[in-house]
Each structure stands twice: as structure tokens, then as C-alpha cells.
């Protein structure tokens, strides 16, 4: 049962992963990538990582939906009505990737993997939580900082307007002057 599920998910993941770069239409490419990543989430469920698997599904769905909008915004010809290739150096890349795969596969098959140590905990989620809030606290904090820094950095990068544009040079304007008024008046 699990083997069949693994096989199906694996095949779907690889095929839709390949299709990402074969579809003309950006919407199809994005959602093909989503399919591939959802399969990865499914494989994680098979591995017994329920929480992380579901979180992957959740995050990837939202991420891809947003990505689709960026696609439509920035890509020329997002629907693929006028087929065109936007690739470069296809041959070289194919060679590199082929070699990389062969090397990786050889490594995977030839490496003397150590025997399994210990048993999976009854509740891996609890295990993860205890670890993140305990010995791995530093990792968690670094991740938090990185996320926060990214939020700030992306906003700075993406926006053009600052508070002086919104509230005037002396920051005294009672109402922000925005192209579109918000709901709180800030």
C-alpha cells in the first residue's frame, strides 16, 4: 500500500516537476510546480512526518497561488498564447544536470548508509516542538530573525513610498496620502 503510494507520488512529482519547464502557460507551470511540491508533502506523510508534510502542503499552496500573480504581473506572455522559448544554454545545462544526477545516484546507491539508530518517536511533532524549544532554540531564533529581516528587506526593496511620502515632510498629515485609502486610516 505504502509502496504503491510512494511510487505514484514519486512519478507524479518528477513528471510535474519536468512539466514546469515544458508548459508555455505560466499558470500551468506554476500549478505543475505546486503539484510536484504537494507530492513532496505527500511523501513526507509517508515518512511519518505528519506535521511537516501538512505544513509543506499549506505553505506551498499559498506560496504558489501568490507566485501565480507575480507571474502574470511580470512575465511576458503568461498564457502561452504565443509560444516562445525563454531559455538559454539548454544543452550545457542538460549535460550538467545529467552528470549531477548520475553522481548523486551513484552516491546514493554506493554509499554505505549507516544502520538506523533508535526508533521513531510516537509523536514526532512533539519531538520536533520540544527540540525547537529546547536544544535547537538557537536555530529557531535564527530562523525567526531571518524571517523578520526578510520581511523588512522585502518591503524596503519592493516599495517606493516611505512615511514622508505618506504623512508629509513633517509627518504631521492627519491622514496618510495613499493611492488607495486603507481601512484604518494609518
Amino acid at each position: 500500500m505504502n509502496d504503491v503510494a510512494f511510487g505514484l507520488l514519486a512519478a507524479l512529482a518528477v513528471v510535474s516537476g519536468v512539466m514546469v519547464f515544458r508548459f508555455d502557460s505560466m499558470a500551468r507551470a506554476t500549478f505543475s510546480l505546486l503539484t510536484s511540491l504537494l507530492c513532496v508533502g505527500g511523501e513526507m506523510l509517508l515518512l511519518g512526518l505528519d506535521y511537516l508534510g501538512i505544513v509543506t502542503v499549506l505553505m506551498m499552496t499559498i506560496e504558489m497561488a501568490i507566485m501565480a500573480v507575480f507571474m502574470v504581473m511580470f512575465m511576458m506572455n503568461p498564457a502561452g498564447l504565443m509560444p516562445m522559448t525563454m531559455t538559454h544554454n539548454k544543452k550545457g545545462a542538460a549535460v550538467i544536470c545529467g552528470i549531477a544526477f548520475v553522481l548523486l545516484a551513484a552516491g546514493v546507491l554506493l554509499a554505505p548508509w549507516p544502520a538506523r539508530q533508535g526508533k521513531p518517536p510516537a509523536d514526532p511533532t512533539m519531538d520536533l516542538g520540544m527540540s525547537l524549544m529546547g536544544p535547537q532554540m538557537l536555530t529557531m531564533m535564527v530562523l525567526g530573525m531571518a524571517l523578520f529581516a526578510t520581511i523588512v528587506a522585502t518591503v524596503v526593496l519592493a516599495t517606493r513610498r516611505g512615511r514622508y511620502d505618506r504623512f508629509g515632510d513633517d509627518l504631521r498629515a492627519p491622514q496618510a496620502s495613499d493611492p488607495v485609502r486603507g481601512g484604518v486610516g494609518r
Partner: peptide, 28 residues
């Protein structure tokens, strides 16, 4: 009654994002 039922609910509900966007995009 999944052990991560609440996250499951949230993830499934997020599929609606993809669903509605696709339905909106599809008809051109």
C-alpha cells in the same frame, strides 16, 4: 481524527486559494 487535525484543516482550506484563482484565470 488526525493528530495534526487543525493544521490539516488549515492546509485544505488553503487549497481554495488555488481553486478560486484557477477558476478565475482559466476562462480567459
Amino acid at each position: 481524527d488526525l493528530p495534526e487535525g487543525i493544521v490539516w484543516f488549515n492546509a485544505m482550506e488553503a487549497l481554495a486559494w488555488a481553486a478560486v484563482w484557477l477558476t478565475g484565470w482559466g476562462p480567459n
